[in-house]
Each structure stands twice: as structure tokens, then as C-alpha cells.
Simulated assay, not measured.
Amino acid sequence: MTAPNSSERKACWDARDHLWKCLDDNSDKSESCQNFQSEFEAKCPAQWVKYFTKRRDYLKYKEKIQTEGFSPAGGPRENS
């Protein structure tokens, strides 16, 4: 597979940005953004789609931690 050229990269990034905006506007309901999802998958290499999807999940998680704070999951406690 050859690396995407400048115009192909820009088309991919634009498709990603449109999808992410749609997801933000629709509270992450992907069924509302199916056209953008299809365009994103068509214009970006599969590895990039996987990377950008994980990246969005990470950024959303990071934002949540920064706004709501971190609270550890309740697990088994050690008895002293």
C-alpha cells in the first residue's frame, strides 16, 4: 500500500472532522452520522480509521476525567 498523497490526506482528515462534529452534535449516536462514517471509511486507509477511532475514544475519556475527576472503581479491599 502506498502512502496517501497530500490531497488524499486532506480528504481523509476532512471526512474525520465532519464525522466527529456530527457525533458531537448528536451525542455520539452513530446511526445519525452513518453517511459521514461511510465517507470517513472510504476516504481513509483502514489503519487510519482504526487509529482515529481509538484516538477519539481516548480524547473523550481524557475530557471526562478532566471535567468530572477520577474515581477509582470499587474492588475488593484488603483486610488488615
Rank of each mutant, 00 (worst) to 15 (best):
T53W: 00
G75I: 12
E39P: 00
S27L: 12
R9Q: 06
K43C: 01
W13Q: 09
R77Q: 12
F70P: 00
R55D: 05
R9H: 06
W20S: 13
K50N: 10
A73E: 12
E41K: 10
E68A: 11
Q66T: 06
T67H: 10
F40L: 02
S6T: 08
K29I: 14
V49M: 01
E8R: 02
G69N: 07
D14V: 06
A46T: 12
S80A: 13
C44H: 00
A73H: 11
K29S: 14
S27Q: 15
M1N: 10
E68K: 10
K64F: 12
P76T: 06
Q37A: 12
E63A: 15
M1I: 09
A42H: 09
M1Y: 12
E39A: 09
Q34G: 03
A42E: 12
Y58S: 05
S71I: 11
D25K: 03
D25P: 01
D28S: 05
W13I: 04
E8M: 06
T67G: 02
G69T: 04
K10I: 05
D24Q: 12
E31R: 04
S80Y: 10
Q37N: 04
R55E: 08
A15D: 00
D57F: 06
N79M: 11
A15T: 00
W13K: 10
V49W: 02
Y51F: 14
N35A: 15
S71V: 15
C12V: 00
E41N: 06
W48M: 09
D57H: 14
V49E: 01
E31L: 04
T2I: 13
C33A: 05
N79I: 15
C22Q: 04
F36H: 14
S6A: 11
D14T: 11
Q47L: 07
K29A: 12
Q34S: 13
E41D: 06
E78S: 06
K54N: 14
Y61G: 05
C33N: 03
Q37D: 09
S6F: 10
K54V: 00
T67V: 13
S32W: 05
F40A: 02
E68Y: 07
K62M: 12
E78K: 09
E68Q: 11
S30T: 15
P4D: 02
S30F: 14
G74T: 15
S27A: 14
F40M: 01
D28A: 08
Q37R: 11
A73G: 07
